[in-house]
Nucleic acid binder design. Structure first.
Lengths: 153, 153
DNA sequence: GAATCCTTGATTGAATGGATCGAGATTCTA
DNA sequence: TAGAATCTCGATCCATTCAATCAAGGATTC
């Protein structure tokens, strides 16, 4: 699994929306400047997240984006699969994006067997992590940071 | 972590050499046809593995490649790092190939914290796996396959 | 010294990734 | 109902990476 900038932006944008989860929508430009993401590019990514059913949008003057379901229901593995594709490090061990490799005999391939373990460990971690979890982490990290600041003063 | 075809070939070639570990060298063309790897490309890859200290070569008529050290001493994580680069799914959590990301505050980044866990789990698996381990897997898979064949007869 | 094989670097062609643009659709508001 | 704000969608661009091939050259052995 490799997270490209695109996937990173997607997850950061979702976290932004998760931290402010409400029926109100948030504009692209707000997310763009808060998260330091090129606006045009983010536009593309949010639209893609909409297609995937992770966010929903509202057009027009008071338009913007919001989560399509509560943060607890948004699984990180699902987001990454939608944006980036396979979690597996190599196609021949992917469950959702299987691709045949050109080794002489896949069933007897030692490389495949170790890569399968890698895939499983990645998938296990990301399947059990939801956006709610990311949001909690973000809040805790912020709180810890504020505590540090107090301490310094 | 993403394993490209290049890395796959490298590990398959090493496994080939590991299964036949001896002072004798094996020709590129032999590995190439046994493992179904384009010869010219394999040439490039083996040369790269030589630079990394994983194999050594012998020129001339009876030339070829062999492992530069016993299979137990060749760690898969090291091979992948040399051929592909970082194990981490994103640069900002890589230990050996760190790259700054453009998020507003790296220390408070929730994404970073979950990706760090992914990195650690990948690294842990691949650090403890040696070529000797891969070779053993290959032998077992072959044996199991033969047993199946017997059973069918 | 000829055959064989490794060495090195250049090159190519395709795919991917990051990013931008422009025109269109939709919604609100004055 | 005109127009401004905002999302929508497809096209395009540029740089980089990947996979693969090629060519010339050097080393080694028989």
């Amino acid at each position: 699994m490799k997270l490209t900038v695109r996937g990173e932006y997607a997850l950061r944008a979702l976290t932004h929306l998760g931290l402010r989860y409400s029926p109100k929508v948030i504009q692209i430009s707000v997310i763009s400047s808060a998260e330091n993401i090129p606006k045009r590019f983010l536009e593309q990514i949010l639209n893609d997240l909409r297609t995937g059913g992770f966010v929903e949008s509202r057009r027009g003057v008071a338009g913007g984006y919001r989560l399509a379901k509560p943060p607890e229901k948004i699984v990180i593995a699902g987001v990454i699969r939608h944006i980036e594709g396979a979690l597996a490090p190599i196609g021949c061990v992917s469950e959702n994006y299987y691709e045949k490799c050109n080794c002489p005999d896949e069933a007897r391939c030692a490389l495949r067997s170790i890569m399968k373990e890698v895939r499983d460990s990645i998938a296990h971690l990301l399947e059990k992590t939801t956006l709610a979890n990311l949001v909690t982490r973000a809040e805790k990290l912020k709180a810890a940071d504020l505590a540090d600041a107090d301490f310094v003063i």
